[in-house]
Computed example of a mutant assay.
Amino acid sequence: MAKIIGTIICVTGAVAMALLKGPKLLNKEFLPIMSQGGENWLLGCLFLFGSSCCWSLWLILQVPVSANYPDHLSLTAWMCLFAALQSAVVTLILEPDMKVWRLNSYLEFLCCLYAGVSSAVTFFAQAWCIAQRGPLFSAMFNPLLTVIVTVLACAFLHEEMFTGSLVGSLAVIVGLYVVLWGKAKENEESMNVDPSQIKKRSNQKPLSSESSDETSCRIDLEEPLLSDKSPYSGDNI
């Protein structure tokens, strides 16, 4: 229930930041730095929606991928390699002129280097986080992007900040911590399982398969080394 309620609060806060205005708080004299274009806003919204869907699927797919391929560093290298190849193919189709590919200054080279390194670090950190806590833990930090973009746009681009943006930001933060609290409680309940009850249920089943042997060995390792029921005592020797 905490995870559901926190997610609703986060989404509501993000929507409030985009739709609600109210009184102005900062930058009352707005100085437009970038050109105001709006002829392709529908296409942009569709692209953002598709990007959100693909990002959600990527987070979910990281769970079976991390289980079958636990080396996150190698996995990140493969993902960055294929992403670079796909980006190169799309760029060649959209911009066949090879002169555009030239780097005219060290700043452009540093920007490309920073984009590659930061993407690799992001993929590695998220893959590790998903392997440790699941996709929900990593996905719940995405609403903070709206808050960070609002603060940075107000500070550097001199965009106006309204009361609705402040209220929405607080709602996003509160909803995030509610979801994380519910996730932490869920992890505590899953870890606080009585080993004796698990061993009792496992002893009721015949150890005839390979999976049963692995379960029994895992349970026996949780017991003290000098316990009465040793797997190497009696008839097992």
Rank of each mutant, 00 (worst) to 15 (best):
T146L: 04
K205V: 12
I4D: 07
H158S: 03
T146F: 04
K200F: 05
D235N: 08
V90N: 11
M1G: 15
E108W: 12
S227G: 14
I8E: 01
S105M: 03
A115N: 07
G50L: 14
K21Q: 13
H158Q: 14
S35L: 03
K200S: 15
N187D: 01
V11Q: 11
L94M: 14
L176G: 06
V117G: 00
G44T: 10
N68Q: 06
Q197P: 09
L20D: 01
I173H: 14
S209V: 07
I130K: 07
F123P: 00
W181E: 03
L75I: 11
S196I: 01
M17D: 06
Q36I: 03
K28G: 13
M140K: 07
F156R: 10
F109Q: 00
V89L: 07
I33A: 05
Q204G: 09
L19M: 12
F30I: 15
L92G: 11
S74V: 09
F47I: 12
T163K: 15
S208H: 12
A131N: 10
I130C: 00
V149N: 14
T91P: 00
L113I: 02
M140N: 07
S118A: 10
D220A: 03
I173Y: 12
K28Y: 02
S227Y: 02
M17F: 04
Y232V: 12
I173D: 11
G6V: 06
S190D: 06
F47R: 06
I33Q: 08
M191R: 15
C54H: 00
V11R: 00
Q126C: 10
S216P: 00
D194Y: 00
I60K: 05
T7V: 01
R201E: 10
G116N: 06
L145F: 09
G164D: 04
G116V: 10
C154Q: 15
W78S: 14
R201A: 15
C112P: 00
V117E: 02
G38Q: 10
W41L: 15
H158T: 01
W41M: 12
T12P: 02
L31D: 01
M191K: 15
V100K: 08
L46G: 07
A83P: 05
I93H: 07
M161V: 13
L113K: 02
L225T: 03
S105K: 02
L25F: 15
C129D: 11
C217T: 09
D228R: 08
G44F: 13
I198Q: 13
N236T: 15
F156I: 01
S118T: 05
D235A: 06
G37S: 10
M17E: 04
F47N: 08
S35T: 05
L144K: 03
W41D: 09
D71S: 02
S118L: 08
L170R: 08
S105P: 11
I198T: 09
Q62P: 05
L59I: 00
L46T: 05
T91Q: 02
A115E: 14
S35D: 08
L170M: 14
C45S: 04
K199F: 04
Q62K: 07
K24I: 04
I198W: 08
A14H: 07
L75S: 12
G164W: 10
S56G: 02
M17R: 13
L221Y: 13
V147A: 15
G116P: 13
